[in-house]
Amino acid sequence: MTSGQADTRAGLMRSTPLRSAPLRRAGRPWTATLLRGLLFLILGLFVLYFTLPLFVMIVTSLKSLEEIRQGSLLGLPQEIELTSWATAWGSACIGVSCHGLRPYFWNSILLVVPAVVISTAIGAINGYALSKWRFPGSDVIFGLMLFGCFVPFQVILLPMAITLGKIGMAGSVSGLILVHVVYGIGFTTLFFRNYYVAVPDELVKAAKIDGAGFLAIFTQIFLPLSIPVMVVTVIWQFTNIWNDFLFGVSFSQGGSQPITVALNNIVNSTTGVKEYNVDMAAAIIAALPTLLVYVVAGKYFIRGLTAGSVKG
């Protein structure tokens, strides 16, 4: 009797989860169904909770001001109006100029692209040097960079402002790029270093014997391997720099402000009637590029991971 029970238990343990699932359901159908239902209910509630704000934003941006004033927050628009989108993009007033978000959108692009490229490039070469060309003190340097990741934005505002002033880059786009590059290097170095640590040292040895030097090994062997980590780094840096408000509002002025600062100004500087539909459209426009980066690069990220050709 007892040995029979033990056998059954051993058999259950050996069988795959797929096969044991129907067994368990047959044993206690009520609780299983109940739990499954509860699980979906909770998940559904979470989905609602997270998508509701987006839904409200989109719906509101498509309504006319008249309708917003009368109607409920959640109701669908009676008539779809795209004028608020056009206004937000091209003619909303920020301060005295009424050109919408468009110029600031390009400001952000001009800021984000170089900042992401430079910080990713420096992170890649740092990570390569710190993992494959160790030197006395390299671990200390890496530790300090890691520490840099934990320094909050607010802490560096004043010293950074003084530094930018001293080197004559205050209030310029290049100054803002420099701030983001310096702040981002800690993260990008961390990403690349941890990725390269897993690449076998023998690859470097083989390449050294083949006659390649520091840079040739980096560009011809390590960079082609780095697509997955590069995508991760680019997503991270792009999102952070695009969404940054604090550095943007502190270190830029007048026409060179990034889109986040412009969005803030649109929302806060309306006179007379508050145009909620324009505000919502502007907020969505400001968030679109990061969404796009996730959708486009996310695919490459998965592809890069599954290619997994590092293993010898």
Binding site: P200, L203, K205, I209, Q220, S309, G312
Partner: peptide, 17 residues
């Protein structure tokens, strides 16, 4: 690279890309 040697490694160390 200037020693005029060649080496074969245990993990082969082929350049994966």
């Amino acid at each position: 690279k200037d020693r005029d040697i060649a080496m074969v490694f245990q993990s082969y160390a082929l350049y994966p890309t």
